[in-house]
C-alpha cells in the first residue's frame, strides 16, 4: 500500500512498490489522461509533474513518488479554467490524434514555469516528446502564444 498525492487528492494504491507511477495513475487512481507510449521514457506521452518537474512516469516506481506532489493533465486546469498552455493548444488547434498531447502539454507547462519566455532554442532543448502525427509546427506556435498570454 502506498499513499500518493495526485492533483491535490490523496489516494491509497495497493500495488507492488516497483510498479511504474504511470500504471498506478492509470489503473489504480483511474486517471487515464496520462498515456502509455513506450515504457522506456523515450516518447514522453506519460509526462506528469512530480514536485513541479516534468517527469516521465513510465519509469518512475511508485515507491519514488510517495510523499511527492504529483500533477497530471487532469489537474492542470484550475477550477474549470484551462491552463494557459491548454488554452493556447485550443486556440492554435495543436492536437491531431491527440494521444501524445497530454504529455506534450505537461512538458510545456513545466518549461514555461522555468522559463516564462522560452526561445526556440529553449523549446528545442526542453521539449523532446514524440508526436507521430507531426504537430510540432503548431506546438511551437502555441508555446510562444502561451508565453505571451
Amino acid at each position: 500500500m502506498a499513499r500518493l498525492t495526485i492533483n491535490g487528492k490523496t489516494s491509497e494504491v495497493n500495488v507492488d512498490p516497483s510498479t511504474p507511477l504511470l500504471w498506478a495513475i492509470r489503473e489504480q487512481v483511474g486517471l487515464t489522461g496520462t498515456k502509455y507510449g513506450c515504457g522506456m521514457a523515450l516518447c514522453g506521452a506519460c509526462t506528469v509533474h512530480v514536485d513541479g518537474k516534468a517527469t516521465r512516469s513510465c519509469v518512475m516506481p511508485v515507491s519514488a513518488a510517495v510523499g511527492k506532489k504529483i500533477t497530471t493533465i487532469e489537474g492542470l486546469a484550475t477550477n474549470g479554467t484551462l491552463h494557459k498552455v491548454q488554452k493556447a493548444w485550443v486556440d492554435n488547434e495543436v492536437p491531431q490524434c491527440g494521444y501524445c498531447q497530454a504529455g506534450m502539454i505537461m512538458a510545456v507547462a513545466a518549461l514555461l514555469k522555468d522559463k516564462p519566455k522560452p526561445t526556440d532554442a529553449d523549446i528545442d532543448k526542453s521539449i523532446t516528446n514524440i508526436c507521430r502525427c507531426g504537430t510540432f509546427q503548431q506546438v511551437r506556435e502555441a508555446i510562444h502564444a502561451a508565453a505571451k498570454a
Partner: peptide, 14 residues
C-alpha cells in the same frame, strides 16, 4: 480539440 487537451478524451487503451 478540447478533450485532447484536458485528458478527457477516451482512447481505446483508456
Amino acid at each position: 480539440t478540447l478533450g485532447k487537451v484536458t485528458g478527457a478524451q477516451v482512447y481505446g487503451a483508456d
